[in-house]
Nucleic acid binder design. Structure first.
Length: 930
RNA sequence: GGGCGGAUAGCUCAGCCGGGAGAGCAUCGGCCUUACAAGCCGAGGGUCACGGGUUCGAACCCUGUUCCGCCCACCA
């Protein structure tokens, strides 16, 4: 018996558990090898191995999976390439923190042992995020999973480095870079987060070397004065022009420094005199270079004062040094004043340490030549951003692109493939053995080489992801088949870090774009619109929405390991207020559907749990609709039947074609919100609310022949079966579960819905005239229900109905009287003969007036109120339409069909108005009499 | 300083080519109608941020203003 196979309520957990393992085991995620079918490929943005799944992943991976599943059903050779990123700095920090807890450090271990330790950590903990990804139903091809530190990936990285180097696009140089004094490494410009903080502007007096007086300079970093080499004024600044060329005595150091003129100075800021510290400020460095000034570095790598500075300050941390320098200057009477001042402080995006401009040897990628090609690819449409306006952001950055500092002084990462000879000559090669041969050739003997100790920026390997994962630099079949990939789905936050660099590298090494489209998603925010972050304590874990979580566990989770434990109480309180009962288990499908429904283009999404719950209910609705279908179709044979005979059958099939078309259009335009809305509206609002109700009188009619019922049973099953396929990309689990039961009934079964064909519009099933007839039936039923609802008539009470109107409308009613009688709970209907009975409620439909004699049942006053309300709305509508039709401009300028439409409305409204007025008159009479 | 978004029902958001303001949630009323109370049937709720313009007609196009958000940038 069918009913026993489906429980009464949908239980997401038990359904979801059943399928993923099977799909993966049976290899359904791997590309089909279907001959010459078109290839379709998406590269997952590889999540950090250190990461765990967050809402952003849930959002983006749902979108990617929906695209992939649909394409797979369309029959393409579909690859969703997956893998993880070694995340150099993040991973190294995780392991270093562990070492710290054990009372040791990476330096105690040494490089080799440390790396071993990181690999061990990766083995044990690196799989978290890919396990979580599976819970989302992500159908990536795990058999091709890559890690950015795999040997093949490392080979590709070295190859890319060597080729760029040989072309002069990678070079080494001593430059001022952003330096993280905690991590002791350079970082790229993009890894600098500048935030406004409250500081001070110190006004310092620098006395003249000869004679009386001083110059006042304003600075936000007084401690760097120990490295000053000049004071600059603007060449056109008349106040200071006479000072240029004279010498100052730099306080605390005894050094003499010149006053110079440079246009960098803004005469309007501070005193118009700027101290120049080429070693510790990007602008000053340029000024220094222009004037051939010396560069005096006063910091050690961990930002303590070094031996270049006077002895008194050596060894002091930069912040202590600041205090001491200011104190000493104050003692000497050299501080004029200290103003509060807001300024931008640069911090490292990982360590949050204040960064220092620091002069070191680093490796750089010469970006401008690569950027040129990359811009052209977007200009000429080889790559398209969705939404389109992101190309502005892209161009803006590309036009002003700076050389990319790619060397990092950390250990976890791709080591730079450069070896130095005894004289410092660099040998750059993909293969270590070859390097020694190259060296032997140069020096005439075998020599010892030392390898560059640095590793590459993690984003360097990420930039190669789209082709390196497919086998580059080898010309593999996969590379030929799947590259360029179709679409990249990612967030705007990594357009520069990743998207732009993939485009540059892709074009450079393959001559082709890495992807044809870039779909930029919004950010998932909390219910109040705040960015989710650990420190704010407002993180929602997608798995908690899937599995549910009780309040105490949620509070514990949000307050555990907080960077600022003092916030824990506040976070706990806010959590208790927002989720007094914890979070319900909504299941993966509901979460995915919510993500799709909220995926509006060009806008961040505020995660509304009510929405997720609503879609959990939708799952349940679907579940129960399927139970109903199974109960009524199982055990019957309707093979060979293809016709749709009844109005409901023909109507639902016609509507189904529309949904298929809408779904295709929406998915192709990346309008997942439209896709979700169309499916929801069709399945709940049309299939369940109307069709399944309309089918009941047919199936329950004992007088009707089985064959007639079987026609309807078949349509019912076929419609559901097709809908499940349409829904599958967004709700993979429940659709598989239900499809396995439904599809065999129409001989369509298969091992998995994943490989079932994507629905195709059957134009012959579309029938506008029939839909209009169905609309009439539904409007009539709704009108009766409306009266019932407003008049508080008991739902079970059967009512008689009187109608009058056009022959066509009456005929439609006659054709579907059985259906209408059931849906509207009518006792009988007849054409109005003579006067409208006293106390009848009235409603007006296109071409028909209906009257329900309710004398003694309804309250005349209530009916009067109802009619007046309707009339009021109608009057407003009529006034608007009349206004247009009496406007000469409208009549002469508007399109004829628009005018005709308005005229039709005017006739309809006028007629309706008259009916309502008549009814009101009657009711008032009755009310007055009673 | 430059650039990009956003402002529509109590809340979260749709609204396509300019032509009768929509959905979900929440609210109110009535229902255990044998698929579903995670449900069914109804109802109420809007100065489309504000000003000006174009147009026969503007939530939509142009322009100005206010507020909110984000990105980029070397004012010491």
């Amino acid at each position: 018996m069918s009913e026993s196979t489906l429980s009464k309520a949908y239980d997401a957990a038990s359904v979801e558990k059943r399928w993923y393992g099977l799909w993966e085991e049976r290899g359904y995620f791997a590309p089909s090898d279907a001959g010459q079918a078109p290839a379709y490929c998406i590269m997952i943005p590889p999540p950090n191995v250190t990461g765990s799944l967050h809402m952003g992943h849930a959002f983006q991976d749902t979108i990617m999976d929906a695209l992939i599943r649909r394409q797979r059903m369309l029959g393409g050779r579909v690859l969703w390439q997956t893998g993880t990123d070694h995340a150099g700095i993040a991973t190294q920090m995780v392991v270093e923190r562990q070492l710290e807890a054990e009372g040791t450090s990476r330096h105690d271990l040494g490089r080799a042992l440390f790396l071993e330790r990181v690999w061990k950590w990766k083995q044990q903990s690196g799989g978290t995020i890919v396990r979580q990804l599976r819970r989302l139903g992500a159908s990536c091809d795990w058999s091709r999973e890559r890690f950015t530190m795999d040997p093949a990936m490392s080979h590709a990285v070295r190859e890319a480095f060597v080729r760029l180097y040989n072309e002069g696009l990678i070079y080494r140089g001593k430059r001022l870079v952003n330096w993280d004094p905690v991590l002791l490494t350079a970082v790229s410009d993009l890894e600098v987060i500048a935030e406004e903080e409250q500081g001070s502007l110190w006004h310092l007096r620098y006395p003249w070397a000869e004679g009386e007086g001083y110059v006042v300079v304003a600075t936000t970093r007084p401690e760097t004065m120990l490295g000053d080499v000049a004071v600059a004024v603007h060449p056109d600044d008349e106040r200071h022009a006479h000072l240029v060329g004279r010498e100052l005595l730099l306080p605390l150091t005894g050094r003499r420094i010149p006053v110079i003129a440079d246009t960098h100075v803004d005469p309007a800021f501070g005193t118009g005199c700027v101290k120049i510290t080429p070693a510790h400020d990007f602008n000053d460095h340029e000024v220094g270079a222009r004037h051939q000034l010396p560069v005096i570095n006063i910091f050690t790598p961990d930002a303590r004062i070094n031996d270049q500075a006077p002895e008194a300050y050596r060894g002091l941390d930069r912040f202590e040094a600041r205090k001491r320098v200011v104190e000493d200057l104050q003692q000497a009477g050299l501080v004029e004043r200290i103003d509060p001042h807001k300024l931008m402080i640069p911090r490292g995006d990982r360590t949050k340490a204040v960064l220092e401009p620091y002069l070191t040897d680093q490796w750089f990628v010469k970006a401008a030549p690569l950027a040129e090609e990359a811009m052209r690819a977007v200009e000429d449409g080889r790559i398209r951003f969705i939404p389109g306006n992101w190309d502005k952001t892209y161009f803006e950055w590309m036009r002003n692109i700076q050389d990319w500092c790619i060397s990092r002084q950390i250990w976890w990462g791709h080591r730079i493939p450069v070896w130095y000879g005894p004289d410092g000559h660099p040998f750059v090669c993909n293969c270590e053995e070859m390097v020694y041969e190259m060296a032997a050739e140069r020096y005439g003997q075998v020599v010892r080489l030392t390898r560059d100790p640095d590793v590459l920026d993690t984003w360097f390997s990420s930039a190669l992801w789209p082709f390196a994962t497919l086998g580059w630099p080898k010309e593999t079949p996969e590379l030929q088949r799947y590259y360029p990939t179709q679409v990249l789905v990612t967030g705007f936050d990594i357009i520069f870090f990743w998207v732009a660099r993939m485009i540059m590298m892709g074009l450079k090494f393959t001559g082709e774009v890495p992807f044809r489209e870039v779909y930029i998603t919004g950010l998932v925010r909390d219910a109040d619109g705040n960015k989710m972050s650990k420190s704010k304590g407002n993180i929602l874990d997608p798995l908690d929405l899937i599995d549910g979580i009780d309040l105490e566990s949620l509070v514990e989770k949000r307050t555990r390991d907080m960077m600022q434990p003092q916030l824990a109480a506040k976070v706990a309180a806010a959590t208790r207020a927002e989720f007094p009962n914890g979070i319900l288990a909504f299941g993966t499908d509901a979460l995915r559907f919510a993500m799709a429904a909220l995926a509006v283009q060009g806008r961040d999404i505020k995660l509304d749990l009510g929405r997720v719950e609503g879609y959990r209910n939708f799952c349940n609705k679907l579940w129960n609709a399927t139970r109903f279908v199974l109960m009524n179709a199982e055990g019957h044979s309707f093979t060979g039947l293809v016709e749709a005979r009844t109005l409901p059958d023909r109507w639902i099939l016609s509507r189904l074609q529309k949904v298929i078309a809408v779904m295709d259009g929406a998915m192709e335009r990346y309008r997942f919100d439209e896709a979700a809305a169309a499916l929801h509206r069709f399945l709940w609002g049309e299939f369940c609310d109307w069709y399944l109700e309309m089918v009941k009188p047919v199936l329950y009619d004992e007088a009707l022949a089985e064959v007639e019922k079987n026609h309807t049973r078949r349509v019912m099953v076929a419609t559901l079966e097709c809908s499940l396929r349409l829904l599958h990309p967004l709700m993979p689990f429940i659709t598989e579960e239900l499809w396995q039961k439904v599809a065999p009934l129409i001989g369509r079964g298969g091992a998995t819905i994943m490989r079932a064909p994507w629905p195709v519009v059957e134009a012959s099933r579309e029938d506008a005239a029939l839909e209009a007839e169905a609309d009439f039936v539904m409007a009539l039923v709704t009108a009766v229900r409306n009266v019932r609802g407003e008049m508080d008539i008991p739902p079970g009470k059967r009512l008689p109905l009187l109608v009058s109107g056009e022959a066509g409308a009456i005929e439609m009613l006659r054709r579907h009287e059985g259906l209408i009688a059931v849906l509207a709970k009518l006792e009988s209907w007849s054409e109005l003969a003579g006067d409208v009975p006293e106390g009848a409620a009235t409603a007006v439909l296109p071409g028909m007036r209906i009257f329900m004699p309710l004398s003694g049942i309804i309250d005349p006053a209530a009916e009067i109120a109802r009619l007046e309300k309707t009339l009021q709305k109608l009057e407003a509508d009529l006034a608007r339409v009349t206004g247009k039709l009496t406007n000469a401009g409208f009549l002469s300028n508007a399109k004829p069909e628009v005018v005709a439409g308005e005229q039709a409305k005017a006739r309809e409204f006028t007629e309706k108005r008259q009916v309502l007025l008549d009814s009101l008159t009657r009711m008032r009479r009755l009310g007055g009499a009673g």
